[in-house]
Amino acid sequence: MIVLGFFLTAPMGIGYMEHKVLAHMQHRLGPMEAGGFHGWAQLVADGVKFIQKEDIIPKAADSWVFTLAPAVVMVPYIAIFAVIPFGRTLWAENLDIGIFYVLAITAISVIGILMAGWASANKFSLIGALRAAAQLIAYELPLILASVAVVMQAGTLSLVGISEAQHHYWYIFTQPVGFFIFIVASLAELTRPPFDMPIADSEIIFGAYTEYTGLKFAFFLLAEYGGIVAFSAIASVLFLGGYQGIPVIGHLIPGFFWMSGKVGALAFFIIWLRATYPRLREDQLQRFAWVALIPLALADIMVTGVVKVLVK
C-alpha cells in the first residue's frame, strides 16, 4: 500500500520538477496558476483533464491489446518499488535476488510498448514500437553488465545488502565507469532525451503512443515519470549508497531522506540532459551501445574481478 502510494505521488513530484526545472533552464516560468502557489497543482489539473477526455480506440485497432498495453507498461515500474529499500528497515520485501528481479521486471515494459505500437494500426506507431524494442534490447545488456560489476564488489544480489555494503564508501568512487554506463543505459531504457527516438515527436509524431488519448495516454506518461523515479532509485542504491548518508553527519538525517534526496538529484540530472542535448539517430544509438558501452562494461567487469581477487 505504501509502495503504491509512493508510486502514485513520486512521479507527480518528478513531473512537476520537470515542468519547473525545464522552464527555468529555458527562461520561462512554467506553470504558475493551478493551485495558487507556483502552479503546484498543475499535474492534478492535468490528471482531471485526462479523465475527462474521450477515450478513443481507433476502428482498425486491436482493441484488447490496445487497452491492455498501458497497464503492461506501467505495472513493472510499480512492482520494482516493492524491493527498493528506502531506509535500513524501510522496504516492502528484501529479496535475495533483488537486483536480478529489478532488471528482469523492467524489461517487461517494452512488451507493453510493442503491444501499443502493433495494436494501434498506425504506421508511425509501428515504427516507434520497433525502435523502442531495438533500443531496449541494445541497452538492457550494458545496464545488466554495469550492475554485475557492483554485485561482484558487494558480493550480494540483495538491494538491502548492496546498500549495507556501501557503509564505508559509495560505489560511485570505485565504479565511476559503471555509474556512467548505468545512467546512459537507463536513459535509453526510459526513452528519455537524448535517446527518445521511439517517441521522437518531430519524426514519428509520438511513436507508439500516437493513437492514445485520455486516461490511457496518462498511464504512459505516469509510467515514464515512474520510470525516472525507479531508475534513479536503482542507481542510488547501486552507486550512491542508497539510504546511507555521507560520513560524520550521515546518521543525523534518517535514511529515507538521503534516499529521496539522491533520487531527486538524479532525476534533476535526467531532466537537465533533456534541456541540453538534441536527439540521437537510430543507427548512432545502436552503434553507441554495441561498440562503446558493452565493451566498456565488459572491461569494467574484468577490472573489478581482478581487483577483487588482488585485494583479497
Binding site: M25, P194, A200, S202, R274, A275, T276, P278
Partner: peptide
C-alpha cells in the same frame, strides 16, 4: 530546427 532535432532549449532561446 533545434526543436526538430530534439534540442528544445535552443527553440526558446532563439524565440526570445
Amino acid at each position: 530546427t533545434g526543436l526538430e532535432l530534439g534540442a528544445i532549449s535552443i527553440m526558446l532561446y532563439a524565440w526570445r
